[in-house]
């Protein structure tokens, strides 16, 4: 590592970002500059340089001139590091004060019980998703609505979600599902219909959500599941926020009207037969 790299590394160790360290070193080495030549020398955009300069000014490491055009100069190293240290110390003191205030407040307040508070949390794997879903399905009272990608049909069959849904229908529950029905899942979809699930075909992937009893929701945007295994990564959102549930339900009802009855779609697919090798439909399957 050369001297310059060591210097940059020490600066980042002192709390500067890599860009801030590079820009500060550049000003130290080459003297005061306006943003344009800085952007050129550092191979970046002017906006980026502006952002970094603003941050360095806040840290007391760069000083702008008062005349126009504004020229930026590096503050000498001792003074600059002293300022940065002071700023961090001041922030630390501020945080200590806030912490004490919060501790005091929490003693005085009666917080609302957790079951009254809406929560949003991220689900990160198929295993976690199934673990969260199954108990909810088993305790459903009225209805379950969902808009799912085709791959969900396979996951549902493999992990016992379908069985739980059929049980819910037997208990008198209503299950409505929109799914992108393609040839490979036509048989699974027919199984849903045979077991009392209302299914419609929605030919767009990338939007996925499910709502349990108009309250608990799980949603994902552009979920890209490439391998169906419990440890496969996903990014889904779980919430019991009633407003969010109303938002998703309203979206569901709009899309439901635009979708096609599953029986109609299955008939079309069976008539057309299996997708031919090399076609887009075949690649998707």
């Amino acid at each position: 590592m050369d001297n310059e790299a060591v210097f940059l590394s020490r600066l980042t160790g002192f709390g500067l970002s890599e860009k801030e360290a590079q820009l500060y070193l550049h000003l130290l080495k080459y003297g005061p500059k306006t943003p344009s030549p800085l952007a050129k020398s550092l191979h970046t955009y002017r906006e980026d340089v502006h952002r970094t300069l603003t941050s360095l000014i806040e840290k007391g490491m760069v000083r702008p001139s008062l005349d126009s055009p504004t020229v930026y100069a590096a503050v000498d190293l001792d003074t600059a590091l002293g300022s940065a240290l002071q700023k961090q110390e001041s922030e630390l003191r501020e945080m200590e004060t806030r912490k004490r205030e919060l501790q005091e407040l929490s003693k005085q307040q009666r917080f609302r019980p957790s079951d009254e508070v809406s929560t949003f949390k991220i689900i990160k794997s198929i295993k976690e998703l199934i673990a969260v879903m199954l108990p909810v399905i088993n305790s459903l009272h009225e209805d379950w609505t969902m808009l799912l990608p085709a791959v969900a049909a396979v996951i549902g069959a493999q992990f016992g979600v379908d069985e739980a849904a059929y049980e819910f229908v037997k208990r008198g529950g209503r299950v409505r599902m929109m799914i992108n029905i393609s040839y490979p899942i036509a048989k699974i979809t027919q199984g849903y219909l045979d077991n009392g699930i209302e299914v419609r075909h929605f030919g767009q992937e990338g939007i996925n959500f499910t709502i349990f009893d108009k309250r608990i929701c799980i949603s994902a945007i552009s979920a890209d599941v490439t391998r169906i295994s419990p440890n496969e990564s996903i990014a889904a959102l779980w919430t019991d926020d009633p407003t969010y549930a109303r938002y998703l339900l309203s979206t569901f009802e709009t899309l439901w009207k635009q979708s096609i009855p599953a029986a109609e779609r299955i008939e079309e697919l069976i008539k057309a037969g299996p997708p031919q090798a090399g076609t887009a439909e075949h690649q998707r399957s």
Partner: peptide, 29 residues
């Protein structure tokens, strides 16, 4: 869905929130 021709008075269902976890979810996406 199918937002090609859209005008100011068109209906739409959107969700506004200042929830941090929801923002994290959107940002990850």
């Amino acid at each position: 869905v199918n937002m090609v021709d859209v005008s100011l008075d068109d209906p739409l269902v959107a969700f506004w929130t200042d929830d941090q976890a929801y923002a994290d979810f959107l940002i990850a996406t």
